[in-house]
Design a protein around this nucleic acid. Structure first.
Lengths: 337, 337
DNA sequence: CTGTTAGCGCCTTCAA
DNA sequence: TTGAAGGCGCTAACAG
């Protein structure tokens, strides 16, 4: 009960506290001037007592926590695992521990921002799924001004203080639809998100823009909510395919929705891609394993090392200006088109 | 740049540091003896400076972090979101912040345990997906002895120090198979996990036991790996259904696998549940939305408040002995059987 | 009602 | 090669 401190180690090993510290970290200048015997004795004592340096005290003294925080709206999204992975990988070499917090509960982003202001971690990667009020951006800027390394992943944030990661998903959606049109499709369904103004999402705009560019009239009938869940997507696809003049292609604004749409097609005897071409969004792993493998838009590589190095370079003080990093989305053609 | 400290606030508001502290926390005994004017002045200064108490310093002083850590092997599992949610919910009322760490990378559990020993958080809920070496259990015990509140979610851990959460999933699997047998099924397929000794998993044993109890011979042909992914499960089901004497029922050791199995059946013209009864494992949300809704084994409620209160009661010092908490799994009958 | 003060555990400069 | 001492920012017992 009660963790041992450096003092306990020092007493037990019959040395001073600073000697213990030197054994742990070496001394500035490389040549750690501790005699082998002393070192040996101290190390044994440490092992024997099960001593671990108190990170809190160390943080207070060093004015850094050696922690990185990843803030996501929720767990359960396979893609977030890749972000965490890249962060852990990159941070590990520099002695950072990655912790994750959830913004979807708790009081949301503000709670995390307060925690960060109070010293939860040295750096923050915060990911947004939706557009957020300006106040959040300002709070993030304030964090940045206080010396916290901040990277925000969001297409709706601009900042002159923190780093922001954008995607080109709107343009990718446009490309996807253009691709379908080029292959002769004229009636192209869209399975969109139901809530939160899907009408104004970039992806939706990409769909509309592509149609306009090719002088194909926008048909409200062809747009259905349902991208948020497999079942809703299945039903959306069903209703799309039950249309008198049914679409020959579908863009789903989520890969799982696209997979459900393929299923719906199959269940009424339509072949993918021959009777119905399907494109998803996000490039999730499941899309590679689906039957048939799913054409999708997204970032081909699932690594987030670019984001991680953005954060780490800022932590290293190598970044002066606020930066904007773009993760270019592409059309990834597989067998569903 | 550089966060303001209490000292900055005190100077700026022309009071002593302790006064600032009292304004923030009140004073012991409830009656905070700070004059309204002073309080007002201090609060304004705090707001103006954008001051947030340095949690690191506070932690060092109070000898507690007010943090709870949830350690899971990976993100991307929807079920883990429920654990986090319950923890956040319960912790929030007591002023705890929940952080999540990943044990699947980093050097695994040991890294987290070290972090905890160094004061990452006051309490730890650690979840295991696989059986782990004894050393891990011992390290967790040691943590517990150092005064950290530890709850381990694992069927393979016993401890006389920390709290452990068990499930009755083996028995539930037995029930599920018995249920199928009672409904007349004799050839019951199993989609199991491929790696990590699926043969010895509790779920697998439940399957075997149920067969034996009903004097049905175990048939190796009916057991296939594939529970780990949708596609593998689809193929496992396909091969099961291609058997000359094909099974009339299938137990899949994961819900997603069960859903893929239903799909496979449908794709070759078999109806679920009439031609093939399917039971999954885990009670994921998707199972309620699948077509048909999936019969499964699992905990009917998706809340983990029981686990959360286990941890919190220990944090409150209300728990003396090591406890074993059981989350009883049940057969949840829906329409796939 | 407000201020002074002694640490929490660790790191690091300076002295021995 | 080792030790002594101050202080990171905050809390809380004790004075005033």
């Amino acid at each position: 009960m009660g963790r041992p401190t450096m003092r306990d180690v020092a007493e037990s090993a019959q040395v001073s506290i600073s000697t213990v510290s030197y054994v742990l970290h070496g001394r500035r200048g490389g040549s750690d001037r501790i005699s082998p015997e002393t070192r040996e004795r101290v190390e044994q004592t440490i092992a024997q007592l099960g001593y671990f340096p108190n990170r809190t005290a160390r943080s207070l003294r060093r004015q850094r926590t050696d922690r990185i925080c990843l803030a996501v709206p929720r767990l359960g999204v396979p893609g977030y695992d890749f972000i965490a992975h890249s962060l852990i990988e990159a941070g590990d070499t520099l002695g950072y521990t990655v912790i994750i917090t959830i913004t979807g509960y708790t009081g949301g982003e503000n709670a995390i921002i307060e925690q960060m202001a109070g010293g939860l971690a040295d750096g923050l990667v915060i990911l947004f799924e939706e557009e957020k009020p300006l106040a959040i951006t300002e709070a993030l800027d304030e964090l940045g001004n206080k010396g916290v390394a901040v990277v925000a992943i969001s297409n709706s944030i601009r900042s002159s203080v923190i780093d922001v990661v954008h995607t080109t998903e709107g343009q990718a959606a446009r490309e996807a639809v253009s691709y379908l049109i080029d292959r002769g499709h004229r009636r192209i369904g869209l399975i969109a998100f139901d809530s939160e103004g899907y009408r104004i999402s970039e992806r939706f705009r990409g769909y509309v823009d592509a149609l306009r560019e090719h002088d194909i009239p926008f048909d409200q009938e062809l747009v259905r909510p349902g991208a948020a869940s497999r079942r809703a997507a299945y039903e959306a696809a069903q209703s799309l395919l039950a249309l008198p003049d049914r679409p020959t292609a579908v863009l789903a604004l989520a890969d799982v929705a696209a997979i459900s749409a393929m299923q719906a097609a199959r269940d009424i005897g339509l072949a993918v891609p021959d009777d119905l071409a399907v494109i998803g969004t996000g490039n999730i792993v499941e899309g590679e394993l689906s039957i048939p493998p799913l054409t999708t838009i997204g970032v081909p590589s699932r690594s987030y090392e670019d984001v991680a190095s953005l954060l780490l370079s800022r932590l290293n003080g190598e970044a002066a200006e606020a930066r904007v990093h773009t993760r270019p989305w592409q059309l990834i053609v597989r067998d569903s088109t």
